[in-house]
Amino acid sequence: MPARKFSDEILEKAAALREQGLTFRQIEAETGVPSSVAYFHCLRLGADSPETATDTSTPGGPMIYKRGRHHVRRFTPAEDERLLELELSGMRICDIARKIGRKENSIRGRLMLLARKEARAERAAELEAAQ
């Protein structure tokens, strides 16, 4: 296995900067961690900027779109529900990916996004209840 490019300390610093409200480009300038890497690790660590911490909106647009030279297929609400059911049943990510017909990294990323969305909804509810 190749050596890791960024230590846990630097990735945690990137997450802390995100929680302070810095953009991913600002994080890159300060830490040297590329913005796409910072995005992934902030998602993995549950770090959210204060401006988006309660944003529960769902992106719109076409179900299939082009990103670079690749076509990307959005997850449907039914796929999200099935994905969560399979995860709760204890199924491994590689098996979920095979069953749903997606790549492992897509499943892993989607599970992290769904967890972030749930955390944001909880924060929004707490803020609303406090008012």
Rank of each mutant, 00 (worst) to 15 (best):
V33W: 09
I10R: 07
T76Y: 03
E122N: 11
F75I: 12
L83I: 11
A130Y: 08
A16G: 01
E30P: 00
A3G: 09
I64Y: 02
I100N: 12
A15T: 13
V33L: 06
M63Y: 01
D8W: 08
D55N: 13
A124I: 06
N105T: 03
T54I: 14
L83H: 00
K99C: 10
I100T: 05
Y39H: 15
L45E: 07
M91P: 03
H41C: 01
F24Q: 07
G21W: 08
D8C: 06
E128Y: 07
G46E: 10
A78Y: 02
L111E: 10
F24K: 08
G60E: 14
I100P: 13
E104W: 09
E104G: 02
V37P: 00
M112D: 15
Q26G: 05
H41F: 05
Q131P: 02
E51H: 12
G32E: 07
S36L: 10
T23C: 05
A47Y: 07
R92D: 10
I96M: 13
P34N: 14
G68F: 02
R98N: 05
H71M: 03
D48L: 13
E104K: 09
A129W: 03
M91V: 04
R18V: 10
R4P: 11
L127I: 04
L83V: 09
F75V: 10
L114F: 14
E87R: 12
D48P: 07
H71N: 03
T52S: 01
